[in-house]
């Protein structure tokens, strides 16, 4: 674990950020949010609200989508992340798990995990083994299947691999993009458990979800994005009680 100055526990600051795709499509407008050190913050919103765009703005992958931050700042502690490449985020300790898992299907489970450490520069085999052991403790399933091609894992196992791969970089802030997407309820519970575990080990989490029930049960704080703007913010327990959130995102389960 890289050491942070004790008087400055790094927090993620997204400050008045505008994002535009292809110089024309505005996807985020004046978005601000903070993820304090060691906390879980949920980001809710319907399809197309701009949740993934916000994560891309933090992880430095907007360029791959012809997008750019056109105003505002993104920084993690003292490290400015806007305008930097994804390596900068990984090195600063901010690692994103992409939407839809995106494991390297043709690589083995073990190779997928090793690829998670590529951003940190050369590491000794001992360090890699240690990081891998931590992942295997969290996901024993992956240990059993370490020599198998990742593309042959079930959807839930792939999600675990995607999270495990990101953990190989020993992040201090994990960005999770809809980890419950397309998973059966039992598996969603398992993912929630994992997020709790990761949080308990001291890693902050920015959790993007459409499953508001799950996200609000995990988060300290939550924000709701609507067509590129922050519509609501507050403590997760407060938001869970808000009429708008219950109606829009919790569906019948929340209204009952």
């Amino acid at each position: 674990m890289p050491e942070a100055p004790p008087d400055d526990p790094p927090a993620l600051y997204v400050e008045h950020v505008d994002v535009t795709y292809g110089r024309a499509v505005s996807a985020l407008r004046d978005v601000s949010l903070t993820v304090p050190h060691g906390r879980v913050v949920a980001l809710l919103g319907a399809n197309g609200a701009g949740k993934s765009t916000l994560l891309r703005a933090v992880s430095g992958t907007l360029r791959l989508h012809r997008g750019a931050i056109t105003a505002g700042r993104v920084r993690y502690g003292g490290t400015v992340l806007d305008g930097r490449d994804p390596v900068a985020a990984v090195r600063a300790g901010v690692v994103q798990v992409p939407e839809g898992r995106r494991v390297f299907a043709g690589l083995t489970v073990d190779e997928n995990l090793r690829s998670g450490g590529l951003g940190l520069g050369r590491r000794g085999p001992a360090q890699t083994a240690e990081a891998r052991d931590r992942v295997f403790t969290l996901f024993p399933r992956l240990a059993e299947r370490s020599r198998q091609a990742a593309g042959l894992l079930s959807g839930g196992e792939q999600q675990m691999l995607a999270i495990g791969r990101a953990l190989m970089a020993a992040p201090r802030l994990l960005l999770l993009d809809e980890p419950s997407l397309g998973l059966a309820p039992l598996m969603v519970d398992r993912i929630a458990e994992v997020v709790r575990e990761i949080h308990a080990q001291g890693t902050a989490v920015l959790l993007v979800e459409q499953n508001a029930g799950m996200a609000l049960s995990l988060a300290d704080h939550a924000h709701v994005l609507e067509t590129g703007e922050v519509r609501l913010s507050g403590p997760a327990s407060d938001l869970a009680g808000t009429d708008a959130v219950r109606r829009l995102y919790l569906g019948e389960e929340g209204a009952a």
Binding site: L64, P86, V90, V95, P98, F104, L107, S115, L118, A166
Partner: peptide, 23 residues
């Protein structure tokens, strides 16, 4: 090698490789 792993990862999924910090 790390280069080989980076290359194979990027060959599978450029964005996911970028997210892992592959240059």
């Amino acid at each position: 090698t790390r280069w080989g792993l980076s290359l194979r990862a990027a060959g599978e999924d450029v964005e996911a490789a970028a997210l892992m910090g592959v240059r």
